[in-house]
Design a protein around this nucleic acid. Structure first.
Lengths: 226, 226
DNA sequence: TCTTTATTCTGAACGTGTTCAAAAGAGTTC
DNA sequence: GAACTCTTTTGAACACGTTCAGAATAAAGA
C-alpha cells in the first residue's frame, strides 16, 4: 500500500497507521472501523493515532490527497491517449473511478457530508482547495486543442463547470450499488456525450442568449467557492 | 409550535420532546444540542426520548414529515395563485423555502447525508418515499393546464426531474450563507426561468434527438429510485 | 558521560448517541 | 382491593471519537 520509503521512524509509524486505517475501512467500512481498532492494528496506543492525525476524518483526507497526487500521471497519460473533447472528458473521469475503485467505500465517507463547505471533508471545503485547483487545471487542459471551438465568454468558467460535472458522476458512482457499478459506466457514456454536444451547440451564434443565461447562473453559484 | 391538541398523556410527552428538540436545534444547532439536553428540557429522563424516537435523526425526520404535511395547503394556494409553468415552479419552491426558513439549520442536518439512499435521513431514502411521492405529485399538478405543451415522451418523467431540480435549490439554500440567503433567491429566479425555457424549447420537433438523449440519461439515473 | 530539551507515545478520562434491565404507573379482571 | 398485564419512565452502562497530563524515548549540548 505505502509506496514511498519511510525515512524516519515517526514517518514509518504514521504510514503504518494510515495503512491500518485504510485496510480496516475497506474490510468493514469507515463507520465500523474504530480508532481503537486502527491503533491496535498499527501496534500503537489509541492516542498515538491522534498524534499523527487530528481526527478520523483527517485520515480519509490524507488518503484523498495522496490519491490525487498518485493519479496525476495516469491522468496525463489518459489525456495524451484520448482525442477530442468527449473522449478526453470521459477518459479523465474514468481514470479517477478506476483509481478509486478499491477504496470506493472510503470515498463515500469523504462525500458523505455532501457539498457542505463548512465540513473539513467535502470537495468544496477550503481544506480541499489545493486539490480542487489542480483538478480544475486538468479540465482546462482538456479544452486546449480539443478540436471543439469554445465560446469566448464561456471559456473561463467551463473548467469549473466540468469539474462540477465530474463531481456529480463520482457522487453517483459512490452510491451506485448496481453490479460492478455498471449504471455509472452507462451514465458516464451518455452524460459526457451530452455535455460535449451541449458545448458544441452553445458555440452557435444563435445560442448567445442561452449562453448569457447559463453564465448568469454560473456567476451566482460560483460566488462562494472563491 | 405544536398546533395539534395532545389527546393522551403519552402523546403530550412526545410532543414536548419534539418541541424541546426543535427549540434547542434552532438555538444551538443540531450537533451541539444533546439528547440529554433535549430530555431535560422536556422534563424527562434521557432514556424517555428514545421511547418516543428511535434516534436523534428520527426527531429531524418527524419534523420533516410534519413540515411537509403543514406545507400542503400553502402549496395548493400558491399553485392557484400562480399562472404559467415558470411562475408555478418558482412559487412552489419559494413556499417551501419560506416555510422551512425558521428551521434552516434543522433541514441542514437532514440533507447532510446528501443523496445516500442508505441513510435514514436523505430525501432519497425509502423512509422518505411517501413524502417524495406526494411532493412529485405536486410537480405533476404544475404541468396540467400550465399553458406550455409538454412533449409526450418527456411528460411522465418531468415531475421527477422537477422534484430533483427543487432538491438542488433547497440544497443550495441550506448551505447558502449570504445575507438573508439572497443568492438562493437569485438562483431560484434564474434557474426556474431557464428550466421553463428549456421545457418549451424541448417541445420543438427539431429537438427530438436531444430529448432522446435526455430520456436515456433519466432512465439510467432513475433505475434505483424505484 | 550526564543533563536538558524535543519528540513520540501511553492509557485513563470526558462527552456523545444509544441500549437496556428494571422500576413506576395505569388499566383491567377476578 | 389484589393480582396481573400493558404502557411509560428511569438512570446506569456501553462503545465511540476525542483530549490530555504525563511517561518513555531520542536528540542535542555540556
Amino acid at each position: 500500500m505505502s509506496q514511498t520509503k519511510p525515512a524516519t521512524k515517526a514517518e514509518e509509524t504514521g504510514l503504518r497507521i494510515l495503512d491500518s486505517a485504510l485496510t480496516l475501512f475497506r474490510q468493514e467500512g469507515f463507520d465500523t472501523a474504530t480508532m481503537r481498532d486502527i491503533a491496535q492494528k498499527a501496534g500503537v496506543a489509541t492516542g498515538a493515532a491522534y498524534y499523527y492525525y487530528p481526527s478520523k476524518d483527517a485520515i480519509v483526507m490524507d488518503f484523498y490527497q495522496r490519491s490525487c497526487a498518485e493519479m496525476q500521471p495516469k491522468i496525463e497519460a489518459a489525456l495524451d491517449r484520448a482525442n477530442g473533447l468527449e473522449a478526453r472528458l470521459r477518459e479523465l473521469i474514468r481514470v479517477k473511478l478506476v483509481h478509486f475503485a478499491p477504496n470506493r467505500g472510503v470515498l463515500r465517507a469523504l462525500l458523505r457530508n455532501g457539498a457542505d463547505p463548512k465540513h473539513t471533508l467535502s470537495p468544496f471545503s477550503p481544506e480541499t482547495k489545493a486539490i480542487r485547483d489542480i483538478d480544475i487545471a486538468c479540465f482546462r487542459r482538456i479544452l486546449v486543442d480539443c478540436g471543439t471551438r469554445i465560446p469566448r465568454d464561456l471559456e473561463p468558467h467551463l473548467p469549473g463547470v466540468l469539474w462540477f460535472f465530474q463531481m456529480g458522476v463520482i457522487f453517483f458512482w459512490v452510491i451506485d450499488e448496481s453490479p460492478n457499478q455498471s449504471r455509472t459506466a452507462k451514465l458516464l457514456e451518455l452524460a459526457t456525450k451530452s455535455v460535449a454536444t451541449l458545448i458544441k451547440v452553445s458555440a452557435l451564434p444563435l445560442m448567445r442568449p442561452v449562453r448569457k443565461s447559463a453564465l448568469q447562473l454560473i456567476e451566482v453559484v460560483k460566488a462562494d467557492q472563491v
